[in-house]
Structure formats: C-alpha cells, structure tokens
Amino acid sequence: MNTISSKTIRLAEKLGISRFASTAVSGNEVSQVFTNRNPRNLEKMRIGYKPDGFHVDSLGKRYWHKLELKVTGRYVTAIIKHFENGEVLRASTSEWAIKKQLYKTKDTSAYVNLGRVLADRCLQCGLLEIGCFIQPASPDQKVAQFLKAVEDGGVSLKEPEQYKAPRPSDPYRPEKPWEVTE
C-alpha cells in the first residue's frame, strides 16, 4: 500500500466528536481517520505531488499526465505518460481498429483522426486534463491539427497547478479547489 499519511483525511476538528457519537446507534460507525486508497485521488483533487523540477529545467518536466507524439516511418502514435507510472494510455494508427478506416496512416487525416480517437479514450479513462508540451511550428501543420482534434474531443491540454497548503504567515489563503462546486 502507498504511504498512508499523504492519503489520510482527518475529520474537521470544528465538527466535534459528539456529532459522530450518535451514528453508533444505527451501527454505521465512522472512524476519525478516513483513508482513500485511490492512487490518483490526490491528483484529481489537485493536491497530489507534482514534480517541481528546477527553474533551469527544459520544458516538459512538470506534469501529472502529459501527451507525447511519436512519429515513425509508417505510423503515428500518441501516448499519455504519467510522471511515475510511465505510459498509461496509447492510440496508434498501426492499430487495426483505426487503420482499417484510414486511407493512409501518416497523412493529415490520420493525424486528425488519431486525435479524435485519443480524446475519446481519455474521456473513457477520466483523464480530462493533460499537460502538453508540443509546440507546433504553424497552425496548418499536421501536429497542430492533431492537437486541435484532441481539444475538440473534450480534453483540456493544460493541467491545473498543484494546490499547496498556505503557511500561517503567508499573506493570502488561496481557494481550495475541492470546495468549489458549480
């Protein structure tokens, strides 16, 4: 199991213990410390650790998930990488399910359709925000069209910042992302 301390969520002190004394009546007891074992939970809540890197680092080191594009002689492959787990999701024009419907596996249409398939898979897997450090030279390029297709598919290509708990002496208290409800 992963480290418990980082995934331990403690009852708000202000609620008091007496509030929960009454729950014992129906048998549904609640302990003071709750543990959520989901390894992606803190990242989804925006408080999980995100590598900070150094200020001289090249682009593409600070991310939870990032999008990578691999171009080989015949095919194009899009990969979603996690900073700890490495490759977690992929879509490629070499896959039969995609290749079957394409005319060529490396033309602009292939790039656009690859973007659409990848966005579809990301939504299925609950990866709605993915860091992207690919900078296409011009907006007419194949790569730019691919990125546009991913964004049109409903995936945001910008990751939110990690929420860091303010220290008592910090001037401001930023809004807690998990308390914001639409």
């Binding site: 331990t8 403690r10 708000a12 609620l15 929960f20 129906s26 809540m45 408080i47």
Partner: peptide, 12 residues
C-alpha cells in the same frame, strides 16, 4: 442510511 452525514478534510 439513517446516520449523520460525515464530513472530512484533508490533513496537510
């Protein structure tokens, strides 16, 4: 569930 709603807060 006939119980009071538990509310938790992350312990930084």
């Amino acid at each position: 569930l006939e119980m009071k709603e538990p509310i938790f807060e992350y312990d930084f």
